[in-house]
Simulated scan of single mutants.
Amino acid sequence: MNATQPASHSTAYSGQEAQTATDAAIDRTRLPDDKVLLRAAVDLTRDLHTAKPGIYWPDMLGSALIGYAALAGAILTDKTWLAILLGLVAVQALYRALLFIHEISHMHRDALPGFRSVWNLLVGIPMLTPSFMYEDGHTIHHSRTKYGTPEDPEYLPLALMKPWSLPVFLLIALLAPPALMIRFGILAPLGLIFPAIRKMNWERFSTLAINPDYRRRPPAEAKRRWYILLETGASIWALALFASIPLLGWRPLLVALAVFSVVAVLNQLRTLVAHLWENQGEPMTVTAQYLDSVNVPPPGIAAAMWAPVGLRFHALHHLLPSMPYHSLGEAHRRLSAHLGADSTYLQANYTGMIPLVGRIAASTMRARNTDKSA
């Protein structure tokens, strides 16, 4: 799902005009930590860090059940309009179910016993996105010293790249489902025979990364067995999908791939507006990381659809990464009321997806104009 591969994190800019165009990003990179904000984030939310099983389990199970039922209906119906309607329901429900992978990556192993395993069985493996594809890489993304640097698998300076980078970044997500079938159904079995393929598969195709230069390190010994089990399950499922074609025909697989492709594009669009993407590779303070991230808080309701499971509070999540998704709304209310309208905290709030896309697109256009005048 890599969109582009720039020569460096500043290839889109050159000369004096490039310097002018990126002043704001550089200033944010050098921004010192707002200690009042960081202290308030800790002090005001001490009671909000317990994951509630009564919220997690029904939300995840209900989303998966609705999603698969709608998908089955879309496959079985012979009415085009109904197939499209059920497909859209499946997209929204399975998208929500899939995004629990983000919660799992931050979840302590003793919190919600069995949740990680059940999610992998019901969602991660059937959607060919087992949790190991997110857990380790996402931890790096939250590292104070590695966020926004070339070592971050989930960061590209998209706002400083060429205009064509944005549509490519989104459209490449359409290929994710068939690519995952190849990764688990072909490359993984071949990796049992050829060590070079196994090494390539792990380093390059085992992390949900957008940084094309990222290479994953071998797993820690304590996690190796768990990762092997997940990869084996996903490989068996991918092979079963290939085997279903002569038995069931192409329609079931093509409808499922179409639904999963829309899910992937929706997630890629959410990723596009999760950050401002203005860092050029330098380490950033926690406050700078926060301001390079995005909150789209209520009262708008659209963000609850395209950024579910708490991801509409993505900047707040970077302040408090271990906070359960169901507590982020209350944490936001407390911090907003306590810190006031002129605080650093509210500077990460935006009104919706369209203004954010427009901001990033405008930045890429400045990069194009700079190249033309250079």
Score class of each variant (00 low, 15 high):
246 P>W: 01
247 L>D: 06
52 K>H: 08
175 L>V: 11
331 A>Y: 04
337 A>K: 13
18 A>F: 04
373 S>T: 09
340 G>A: 13
249 G>Y: 07
216 R>Y: 00
156 L>C: 00
63 S>L: 05
121 L>W: 13
69 A>D: 09
184 F>L: 14
225 R>G: 11
108 H>L: 07
48 L>I: 07
3 A>I: 02
315 A>G: 04
258 A>Y: 00
288 A>Q: 06
90 A>Q: 07
179 A>Q: 02
73 G>V: 08
97 A>D: 09
41 A>F: 05
262 V>T: 13
260 F>C: 13
246 P>D: 06
114 G>I: 14
252 P>R: 01
103 E>S: 04
312 R>G: 12
95 Y>L: 07
366 R>I: 02
337 A>T: 12
254 L>N: 05
216 R>S: 03
365 M>Y: 04
80 T>S: 13
374 A>G: 09
24 A>T: 12
244 S>C: 11
2 N>C: 01
252 P>S: 05
127 M>D: 11
294 V>C: 12
113 P>E: 13
3 A>D: 01
148 G>S: 03
183 R>E: 03
56 Y>T: 14
163 P>F: 00
204 R>K: 14
224 R>Q: 14
306 W>N: 10
206 S>W: 05
55 I>V: 15
300 G>V: 08
357 V>D: 06
258 A>L: 11
136 D>M: 00
99 L>W: 03
32 P>M: 02
163 P>C: 00
61 L>F: 10
98 L>N: 05
78 D>L: 13
116 R>D: 13
363 S>W: 00
260 F>M: 15
255 V>E: 08
270 R>Y: 09
253 L>D: 07
100 F>P: 01
360 I>M: 05
279 N>I: 00
340 G>V: 13
8 S>T: 15
87 G>I: 05
72 A>Q: 11
358 G>M: 12
137 G>V: 08
357 V>P: 03
235 S>Q: 02
181 M>W: 00
269 L>Y: 09
349 N>P: 00
281 G>F: 10
125 I>K: 03
228 I>H: 15
90 A>C: 10
34 D>P: 03
79 K>H: 15
365 M>Q: 08
1 M>G: 04
259 V>S: 07
56 Y>G: 10
154 E>S: 06
245 I>V: 15
302 A>V: 09
39 R>L: 10
118 V>N: 01
256 A>F: 15
23 D>A: 14
332 H>Y: 14
282 E>A: 15
211 N>M: 08
213 D>S: 14
101 I>T: 15
248 L>G: 06
90 A>N: 08
135 E>A: 07
107 M>W: 01
330 E>I: 09
94 L>V: 06
374 A>K: 01
51 A>Q: 09
132 F>Y: 13
210 I>K: 02
109 R>V: 15
301 I>V: 12
204 R>V: 10
332 H>K: 07
86 L>V: 09
270 R>V: 10
174 L>C: 12
22 T>L: 11
218 P>K: 01
321 P>T: 12
368 R>Q: 05
30 R>H: 10
323 M>E: 05
341 A>K: 14
10 S>E: 11
309 V>S: 08
244 S>H: 06
224 R>G: 04
367 A>W: 01
255 V>G: 13
225 R>D: 14
237 W>F: 12
295 N>E: 12
115 F>Y: 10
275 H>S: 06
42 V>N: 13
155 Y>P: 04
242 F>E: 07
356 L>C: 03
371 D>N: 06
236 I>C: 07
101 I>K: 14
154 E>M: 01
314 H>D: 11
123 V>D: 06
312 R>F: 06
64 A>L: 09
328 L>Q: 14
